[in-house]
């Protein structure tokens, strides 16, 4: 049986990995890999220097090992926010009215990847390093707001997930027609609500400084964090918006084997 040129083309397209709708798959996986390396690196650093240099904020070593890390974190997240948000804005699609349905489907996949990377950062900030805060403050006397875990949790992890949430919001706003025509309420809730967790750090630090030096997680000074994280349920609305539009787009497509 002869293999025609057309058949070869079809076979080649079918075997192409990743498929067109997962064009950003490797970037997505790379983002997971980079974030994992960063967060695990932080944990290893804490294990190496937490007890030896992180217990007394007046010690010279504390400045070297922890305040330098604080300065680095604040500088890094500021630059990263500017670069990532700036890039998304300046490379925006100015011809959204002419967007092909297939390209719109692909962009919905990329938006889902952006939100997924955002939730991965939420995991490290809201789960692992948050509970570790309790663990560390059980054994370390809190003599500064910049403790060995706060420097990572409040000044890297929180800003990082906010930046990534902002990236998802900007990507949708600048590359998908429905999100460009109107502002998605659930996407905005899911990004702005957890952003308020960072703002709650102010109340937390003020409370711990003013009257509460111990660590006790069910205390009212932590309730601002709790209310902020409820807004993560906005993802349910994003899912419904995405699925509804994807069904419309797929129904309009020709069937392909």
């Amino acid at each position: 049986m002869a293999t025609t040129t057309e058949k070869i083309k079809v076979i080649t397209e079918q075997a192409k990995m990743p498929p067109w709708y997962l064009k950003d798959l490797y970037r997505y996986l790379s983002a997971f890999g980079i974030l994992t390396a960063i967060y695990m690196g932080f944990r290893i650093y804490q294990g190496a220097y937490g007890v030896s240099t992180g217990l007394d904020s007046t010690a010279p070593d504390f400045d070297v090992y922890w305040m330098r890390l604080f300065n680095f974190n604040v500088t890094f997240v500021t630059l990263f926010a500017g670069v990532s948000w700036g890039w998304l804005w300046f490379t925006r699609d100015k011809n959204l009215d002419k967007l092909e349905p297939k390209e719109e489907i692909r962009r919905y996949f990329t938006l889902t990847m952006f939100i997924s990377v955002y939730t991965f950062a939420v995991y490290w900030a809201g789960s692992y390093f948050a509970e570790q805060d309790n663990s560390w403050h059980q054994v370390a006397i809190r003599d500064t707001p910049f403790t060995a875990n706060h420097i990572i949790e409040f000044y890297f992890n929180f800003p990082m997930y906010i930046i990534l949430g902002g990236c998802a919001w900007l990507y949708a706003r600048t590359r998908l027609p429905l999100y460009a025509k109107g502002i998605s309420l659930p996407l905005t809730l899911a990004v702005v609500g957890p952003f308020m967790i960072l703002v709650s750090v102010g109340f937390n630090e003020w409370g711990h400084t003013f009257w509460f030096r111990e660590e006790f997680f069910a205390a009212p000074i932590h309730y601002g964090f709790v209310i902020g994280v409820w807004f993560a349920h906005g993802v349910g609305g994003i899912l419904l918006q995405g699925v509804t539009r994807l069904i419309e787009l797929l129904d309009a497509q020709e069937d392909v084997a």
Binding site: P19, Y21, L22, Y108, F109, T112, M113, I115, S116, T119, F120, V122, Y123, W124, A125, G126, S127, A130, E131, N134, P194, F217, A218, H222, Y223, F225, V226, V229, W230, A232, H233, V235, L239, V243, L246
Partner: peptide, 26 residues
């Protein structure tokens, strides 16, 4: 493929958000 992406998203979303909510209340 979209289902799988949502699964990964949901996994980390609920580990992060439900855990923080739970830890800071009870």
């Amino acid at each position: 493929a979209y289902d799988y992406l949502i699964l990964v998203l949901a996994l980390f979303l609920f580990i992060g958000s439900f855990h923080l909510h739970f830890a800071l209340t009870v």
